[in-house]
Write a protein that binds this DNA or RNA. Structure first.
Lengths: 148, 148
DNA sequence: CTAACCGTTGACGTCGGCGTCAACGCCAGC
DNA sequence: GCTGGCGTTGACGCCGACGTCAACGGTTAG
């Protein structure tokens, strides 16, 4: 299997696979023409990578999982190094969530205070809220649920 | 007041102020030597900018607040445009927090499942947890609480 | 023969908010 | 005159995960 086919089957692009290779994450054999050649196993590795990326894992963080799979384990998270990544990710998420909640509360307070003082006389105006709902792009840091 | 002094008083750098100017966020007058000149008002604008940045607001999002202040209002969030930013930020935060919570739960489940199957015999090993606490850098997207 | 299509490497662009460096100007003090 | 300190503009670097383009090569189908 060559790069185009693997990319299509994995739902990604040749460019991404080449990038992974430069990072040492997904090395490829070469055929007589110098073209990259992959096996079925590589498809599993790619699926692992994408599953973790969808959760906001960085490429480096997927490495233990990928190597774990390549070592022959049934799943990528069978190895201790992968569990460590899980744990540090959990801690990171907890810290992030706590911080965002704190910010959220502060912003909410400010909004209430400001909208109160901005309307000197609370006229109970019930303006129909929003006619159109814009898709506001959410959290991008661990950025899960990327388009495509 | 020139750029170095204002930067020092605002706790930022000349580079940042020049950048703001290129963005049209903080225009400056010039003296005979071509040096940027600022007034006391600009210090207030800068404080507003930094306060919002500490909450994870992007520079563009601070613009309504800054213009509100320049329009002579007592606070930056007196104007409707600023309130809109507050509201959209709240929505963004809510979406982000919800997403992160979902990811957190999934990761936690995975960790439990994997650590359970990784230890075929739950040997109740009570290894002393962590000897050193590494400062894991938290959420960077709305990235509040930046260093300095 | 030529076009279509797949592959290769290399380099630059993207996004935000500046940091850092280069090369220069102007003014004060010794 | 020389040094130090402040200012100016312009350009490149950073970080992550690629997208996009350029210029090239090899295989296959018409």
């Amino acid at each position: 299997m060559r790069i185009g086919e693997l990319a299509a089957r994995a739902g990604t692009t040749p460019r991404a696979l080449r990038y992974y290779e430069t990072r040492g994450l997904l090395p490829a054999r070469r055929d007589a023409q110098g073209h990259r050649t992959y096996g079925e196993d590589d498809l599993r590795l790619l699926r692992q990578i994408h599953a973790l990326q969808a959760f906001g894992f960085g490429l480096e963080e997927t490495r233990p999982f990928v190597e774990c799979l390549r070592a022959g384990h049934p799943t990528g998270d069978t190895c201790p190094a992968s569990l460590d990544v899980y744990r540090s990710k959990l801690a990171e998420l907890d810290a992030c969530i706590a911080e965002l909640n704190a910010v959220r509360e502060t912003v909410r307070e400010r909004l209430l205070l400001a909208s109160a003082s901005a309307a000197p006389e609370p006229r109970c105006e019930l303006v129909p809220p929003q006619t159109d709902r814009e898709e506001t792009e959410p959290c991008s840091t661990p950025r899960p649920m990327s388009p495509r």
